[in-house]
Write a protein that binds this DNA or RNA. Structure first.
Lengths: 204, 204
DNA sequence: ACTTGATGACTCGTTTAGGAAACTTTTCCC
DNA sequence: GGGAAAAGTTTCCTAAACGAGTCATCAAGT
């Protein structure tokens, strides 16, 4: 009933938007119910009126970006679904592989990196194997840091991972760690041979 | 000058939103100029008024979600930056580690999973080590698939990775592969011992 | 020099969003 | 079943969004 009403009051181009308002409203209602929140609780958490939320869920209003943004955060909704028709969700058939030792080399003073699966340029995770040449944290002039998250797995040897805010972490083959890469971090080998680790890095 | 104006006309909470409107406006203007579009061209492409676009860029209005969405698409702007800014960028000091063999076990008919760094519940990447018990692709009743991307590294043994759209990929220790996990995929061991692989999975 | 056209910012009238309050529906308990 | 409370929807009013048109500025051409 309400979608029909919206179509009558708007121009034709608005008619084509109506499905999106429905989808958005349904998405928000589903998320709210999943979390067991009432209209009032969710509205309060997002700092909007409960009547506003009702109207959004029932596709009876075109909400501002700010309100949607606040709702997304409150309901911990994933954002890309809202922009569904973007190029990103259309790309779904990529594959690239790297044979052992055949990645693309990048050398720094402290690490010897081997970038993996590098034919794929638009991948969101960046995997690379590093041989840790550093033996002393003093070899790092400054903390390395970049926004996002990182996972590390020790392939061989032993290392100590230094990060801000935590004690150094001693790790050996098969151990793994996950951390926010916004913290300064650095890794040194503590085994006889230079350790090898696999890093997977994810930006913002 | 305009931000000061906005603060005077609104309540205090609006004052705290003003930086976001500025950032948004700047982001949109930068993207538009990058693409060499005039106000008029971009507005036309997004089906909004050019004065509206000017006001958005100058943080003189709180645009509707629909308008922002259309602008994002027109200017091919990445969406998460608009939302993730607050919650996620505030969280920046997490770390969790898993010693070898100490992950959380999850068994299926075809794999024996060991979830890593599982104390962190809100991490975007999901790393896990899997022992591949499957020996024949027929053991998979259907393709496994989920939106997002996946990286796999062979820790030990040999496997064949089957995905839709590609020939089977034979891999051994040290080899790695990256693929869109929306494609059906499955993995079988081809070595005598059940192979072990490290997967890192990233949703949408 | 002046003229023209492009560009971005501003103005103003119309429409609609958003929230408080009122109303309606649903749920829960006796 | 009835009654009360909780939950959701609708109404009404005010402020602001939105876009067509206007204004100001700048650059290019004659």
């Amino acid at each position: 009933m309400e979608p029909v009403q919206a179509e009558e009051t708007g121009p034709l181009t608005e008619g084509t938007e109506a499905p999106d308002g429905e989808i958005l409203g349904r998405m928000i209602r589903d998320a709210r119910k999943e979390r067991g929140l009432t209209l009032e609780e969710a509205a309060k958490a997002a700092d909007i009126g409960r009547s506003t939320l009702s109207k959004i869920e029932n596709n009876q209003t075109k909400p501002s970006f700010e309100i949607i943004r606040r709702l997304m955060q409150t309901l911990e909704l994933e954002t890309p679904q809202l922009f569904v028709q973007s190029a990103q969700s259309d790309i779904s058939g990529r594959r690239d592989y790297t044979l052992k030792g055949r990645g693309e080399h990048q050398e720094t003073a402290t690490y010897d990196h081997e970038l993996l699966c590098n034919e794929l340029t638009s991948k969101r995770m960046l995997p690379y194997i590093s041989t840790i040449k550093a033996r002393d944290v003093a070899e790092f002039e400054t903390w390395v840091r970049h926004r996002g998250e990182e996972f590390m797995y020790v392939i061989s040897g032993e290392v100590t991972l230094f990060t801000e805010h935590y004690r150094p972490l001693h790790m050996k083959e098969g151990d793994s760690v996950y951390y926010d890469s916004g913290m300064g971090h650095g890794c040194v080998s503590t085994s006889e041979e230079d350790a090898k680790v696999l890093w997977v890095s994810l930006g913002v």
